[in-house]
Amino acid sequence: EEWMVEKALMVRTGLGARQIESYRQGAWIEGVHFKRVSPSGESTLRGTTWYNYPEINKFIR
């Protein structure tokens, strides 16, 4: 699984929702560690946020 939603990321990493938000707003790079995608497939600020687990795992190492 490369891309996953927040709940799956929480299960895989043990991070809480606030921790994920903090990383997203600070250290993680949009387009690398996470992306927002609307149902139409376009990038957007209001779409579902998807997280790239392999890239996040590399960051944590």
Rank of each mutant, 00 (worst) to 15 (best):
S38I: 12
F34N: 00
E21Y: 07
A8T: 13
G47K: 08
Y53W: 11
V5N: 15
G41D: 10
N52S: 05
G16I: 09
T49E: 05
K35D: 03
K7S: 15
K58S: 07
G26C: 13
R61K: 14
S40L: 11
A17V: 10
G47A: 13
T44D: 15
E42Q: 10
T48K: 07
A8W: 11
S38F: 14
K58C: 06
L9M: 04
G16L: 13
S22T: 12
G26S: 14
E55R: 05
S40A: 13
Y51M: 01
V32R: 05
Y53E: 04
G14V: 02
A17K: 14
G14Q: 05
E55V: 05
I60Q: 04
L15E: 01
R12M: 13
H33L: 02
P54M: 08
K58V: 06
T44N: 12
G16S: 15
Y53V: 06
T13D: 01
K58H: 08
G41Q: 09
S40R: 06
G47I: 13
Y23L: 10
R24I: 13
A27T: 08
K7R: 10
L15G: 00
G16D: 15
R24Y: 04
L45R: 05
A17C: 08
Q25K: 12
R18E: 15
A8C: 12
L15V: 02
K35N: 04
V5R: 12
N57M: 15
P54D: 11
G47Q: 11
E1V: 09
F59P: 01
G41I: 08
V5P: 12
P54L: 09
M4S: 02
G26T: 15
S38M: 11
G41K: 08
I29R: 06
K35Y: 06
R12E: 05
G47E: 15
I56R: 00
T44Q: 12
R46A: 15
Y51N: 00
A17D: 05
K58Y: 07
E2Y: 08
M10I: 10
S22Y: 15
R46C: 11
G31C: 06
L45D: 15
Y51G: 00
I29M: 07
W28G: 00
G31D: 05
W28P: 00
G14D: 04
F59S: 04
W28Q: 00
T13K: 01
S43C: 08
I20P: 01
G31K: 03
G47L: 11
A27K: 08
I20L: 06
G26N: 14
E42K: 05
A17R: 13
I56N: 00
H33T: 01
W50I: 13
G14F: 03
M10N: 03
F34M: 03
W3I: 01
I56H: 00
R24W: 03
I60K: 03
E21F: 07
W50D: 02
T13S: 05
A27Q: 11
I20R: 01
T44I: 08
V32P: 01
L9N: 01
H33V: 02
P54C: 09
N57G: 06
E30G: 03
R24P: 01
L9C: 03
V11W: 10
K7W: 12
I60E: 03
G16F: 07
E21I: 07
I60A: 03
W28N: 00
L45A: 11
